[in-house]
């Protein structure tokens, strides 16, 4: 039994491996970006707007509102990164409703990649907000001796993010696979619905945690200046 979609390899040449994770990710990317492009191609600013535009506007403004609630600042500079995190993970997870599809978030490679992105972006925002010195000084707070703990905390929370998402999705898929062998009818459908819910929740948690980390990396003063 394959635990990760990484193990389904379609094409391999040297160290380049085209596995199910990458293929399904590309499918999701095409759907996400292609859909956005199709809808935003001709946006209306008039009195009447299409249902699709209205839906996209609702999603974007909802994400914006959530970021503002978490970060207590203007969401605009973080919208692209945090919003993309949420939409990307949510799309990857929601597509599992189609049979034969295996969510790429069930692969530790994918979740680690996303966690690494957060790990890199957090100090970028932090340094941009308060400068290198001030940002690095945060690791010495409250005392110099806290430096190793702070560094370790940084690493461990990145690892936790990756493992949390991977664990939840992978376990959901595993349960469904096991249940299919035991109770083939009805019950796996309910579990599949649970899986969709969990997928959405995990996407939300991942995005919100990223927002929290970025917010903590920026000083309070800087955050309030963003307003």
């Amino acid at each position: 039994m394959q635990i990760s979609p990484d193990e389904t390899i379609y094409w391999q040449s040297g160290f380049i491996v085209i596995n199910a994770t990458l293929v399904f990710t590309w499918v999701a990317m095409i759907l996400l970006i292609g859909g956005s492009w199709l809808i935003t191609r001709n946006l209306s600013t008039g009195r009447s707007i299409t249902v699709r535009q209205s839906m996209l506007e609702s999603i974007v403004s909802m994400i914006q509102r959530q970021i503002e609630e978490v970060m207590l600042s203007n969401a605009r500079p973080f919208l692209a990164f945090i919003g993309s995190l949420f939409l990307f993970i949510a799309t990857l997870n929601l597509l599992s409703i189609f049979p034969g599809y295996r969510s790429p978030t069930g692969s530790l490679s994918t979740t680690s990649a996303l966690a690494v992105c957060v790990f890199v972006v957090v100090p970028i925002y932090g340094i941009r907000a308060q400068g290198v010195g001030q940002y690095l000084r945060q690791y010495l707070q409250p005392t110099f001796f806290m430096l190793p703990f702070n560094i370790f905390g940084e690493l461990s929370r990145t690892l936790a993010m990756a493992v949390r998402l991977f664990g939840n999705i992978m376990s959901g898929e595993m349960i469904i696979a096991i249940l299919l062998t035991l109770v083939p009818l009805f019950f796996p459908v309910v579990m599949q619905l649970f899986g969709l819910l969990i997928g959405m929740i995990q996407a939300y948690i991942f995005a919100v945690l990223a927002a929290v980390y970025i917010a903590s990396a920026m000083s309070d003063a800087q955050l309030s200046n963003e307003d």
Binding site: F15, V17, T21, T25, P104, L108, A113
Partner: peptide
Amino acid sequence: MQIDWFTLFAQ
């Protein structure tokens, strides 16, 4: 349960 580094980079 391994991390495929190429996949990680690609992702």
